[in-house]
């Protein structure tokens, strides 16, 4: 256990250090979620006028929930990029040789991904409060919201880690990004599920991201929350953990 934590700590420290000291990584990952939040909530608040739009806390809060999940998921995916980059530079090979428990490596990247997400969350909530976003959920709701976001973050990491450990090259970037992007945007991003029509309604109904998004909106608006969405994210978490661990084993067999 000691050794596991040592490896975790070392990988996490290094990845976080990288994130904080490289403006070309830090700045976009902070600015993009903020930009999405302001652009979507600014441009589209007219959506509230659509008959049937019944979200009680205003359009900014409605979008905030989406941007939170989006930033969390992409925070995880970007940590997957670091894994791919480390494979490319040969850093991972050194790590794997040095560490007795290689799951510690994965845990280290997960800690770094969470750190990254927390930084973005803080920025987002500060800006949201500054622009006067309404939060109707109580303290417990917020705990629920951030727990959900953390799970989404690590799930995103596990997905991209599975891809990174299998392809072991930065070229895998789009293969990590595109599926997550599509999953996110095939959810009820701009308006509630009931207002979606046609093929996108069907896609959103089947999309596992939809219950997560709806749950986080319920948390923000303090509406009674349908906690079964946790079962969805936990299932995704379990499946993708397996995906990442088998990927790690493959990478071990391939000699890093």
């Amino acid at each position: 256990m000691r050794r596991f934590l040592d490896v975790t700590g070392a990988v996490a420290w290094r990845t976080i250090h990288h994130f904080l000291t490289q403006p070309s990584i830090l700045v976009p990952s902070l600015l993009f979620p903020l930009f999405f939040f302001t652009a979507f909530s600014g441009a589209l608040s007219g959506v509230e006028a659509i008959p049937g739009f019944d979200f009680p806390s205003g359009y900014a809060a409605f979008q905030f929930a989406f941007v939170m999940l989006q930033a969390s998921a992409f925070g995880g995916v970007f940590a997957g990029f670091s894994i791919a980059a480390d494979f490319e530079s040969g850093f991972t090979r050194r790590l794997m040789l040095a560490s007795p428990d290689r799951r510690g490596i994965l845990a280290g990247y997960a800690v770094a991904a969470l750190f990254r997400a927390v930084v973005v969350w803080v920025m987002l909530i500060v800006v949201a409060l500054l622009v006067g976003m309404q939060i109707d959920g109580g303290a417990l709701d917020l705990v629920g919201l951030y727990t959900l976001a953390a799970l989404v973050n690590v799930t995103g990491l596990l997905f991209s880690a599975g891809v990174a450990t299998r392809l072991r090259t930065m070229q895998a970037g789009p293969a990590m990004q595109m599926p997550v992007f599509l999953l996110l945007f095939l959810a009820p991003v701009y308006m509630p599920l009931e207002l979606l029509e046609g093929w996108i309604h069907t896609a959103a109904r089947l999309n596992p991201m939809t219950p997560l998004l709806e749950l986080s909106r319920d948390f923000i608006s303090g509406q009674p929350a349908d906690l079964w969405a946790y079962a969805v994210v936990l299932t995704m978490f379990a499946v993708l953990a397996l995906w990442a661990l088998t990927g790690l084993r493959r990478a071990e067999r391939a000699g890093g």
Partner: peptide, 13 residues
């Protein structure tokens, strides 16, 4: 994605 996701926006008065 946008024309799907924002389809109902046409119902804005």
């Amino acid at each position: 994605l946008n024309s799907g996701g924002l389809g109902s926006a046409t119902r804005i008065p």
